[in-house]
């Protein structure tokens, strides 16, 4: 076949598929969000934003992202640098550290439920140590802090691995000579990390952060498993509007709000971590 046409033939299936199942539904969401049956309107947005739960779920989602993402970034960087200088057992350690990558948010929520629930392992340990005399219902409205902590821990536990993988791959792309050169010039390990690893890792940091932040705004199942209705988040509200309230327009409006926040943060991250032209490896 003609080499000019062949590539288009090869990308045709994906393009058609994405137009049909990505672009088209996206347009439908937008349409649905901006209409209540008759013409263009912002009613849906007014409805959802004026609902008493909206500010709370917005605050919760952002707070959770703000608490979780920086810790994950620090943890992933720490783990990635540890792995990069590991000689023995590197494969095993990497395997263990990347296990959560394959675990769904729902399963992660259930795993941490086993720890935090009333007859769970945390209570068992605390009573074993004599901190409490009888099991406490930690995941209840009396302990909003602990609910938040449990959700944050489950998220950190589950989703650090994706950042780790991206960063390990990124560190692998940095030529060893730079470190050796820096060492010859007398840079301490900490300085080498600060002056070489971090700047050169910028493209990977971009990818990792964008992906992570977007996923953080989509948090849903972990919360459903651990907090239930105690801790409303945006994605959970979307689900509730769609199913419990059967209000598709409102669900679409929240969906667009989540999208807007995601795009806003993506642009912000790309801007903050931009790599000057010609300064890439």
């Amino acid at each position: 076949m003609n080499a000019r046409i062949l590539p288009y033939v090869l990308i045709l299936p994906v393009t058609l598929f994405l137009c049909l199942f990505f672009l088209y539904p996206f347009i439908l969401v937008a349409q649905q969000a901006f209409s209540t049956g008759s013409g263009f309107t912002l009613d849906n947005f007014r409805d959802v934003t004026s609902h008493w739960k909206f500010p709370i779920s917005m605050k919760n989602t952002l707070l959770l992202a703000a608490a979780v993402v920086p810790i994950q970034l620090a943890l992933a960087l720490l783990m990635a640098t540890m792995v990069s200088r590991m000689e023995k057992g590197r494969d095993l350690v990497l395997y263990i550290w990347t296990i959560p990558l394959g675990i769904s948010d729902l399963a992660a929520g259930l795993i941490w439920l086993a720890i935090f629930e009333q007859s769970g392992f945390l209570n068992t340990m605390m009573s074993g140590l004599g901190v409490v005399d009888k099991p406490v219902n930690l995941l209840s409205y009396q302990h909003p802090g602990i609910v938040f902590l449990a959700i944050a821990l489950a998220e950190i536990w589950r989703a650090t691995a994706i950042m780790l993988v991206i960063l390990v791959a990124g560190i692998g792309l940095i030529p060893k000579e730079y470190y050796e050169a820096a060492e010859v010039f007398g840079a301490s390990p900490w300085k080498r990390f600060l002056r070489i690893t971090l700047p050169m890792l910028r493209p990977s940091l971009q990818t990792a952060l964008v992906l992570r932040v977007i996923l953080a705004f989509e948090i849903f199942a972990v919360v459903a498993a651990l907090g239930g209705t105690l801790f409303p988040v945006l994605m959970g509200e979307t689900y509730a509007y769609q199913f419990d309230l059967l209000n598709g327009g409102a669900a679409a409006a929240i969906a667009l709000i989540i999208l807007a926040i995601s795009i806003g943060f993506t642009l912000l991250i790309l801007r903050l971590l931009r790599v000057p032209k010609g300064a890439s490896i």
């Binding site: 539904p25 649905q32 977007i214 705004f217 849903f220 769609q242 679409a252 995601s262």
Partner: peptide, 11 residues
């Protein structure tokens, strides 16, 4: 870079 599960709604 898109919250894809959201597309389930119109679909």
């Amino acid at each position: 870079a898109f919250p894809l599960p959201l597309l389930a709604l119109p679909l």
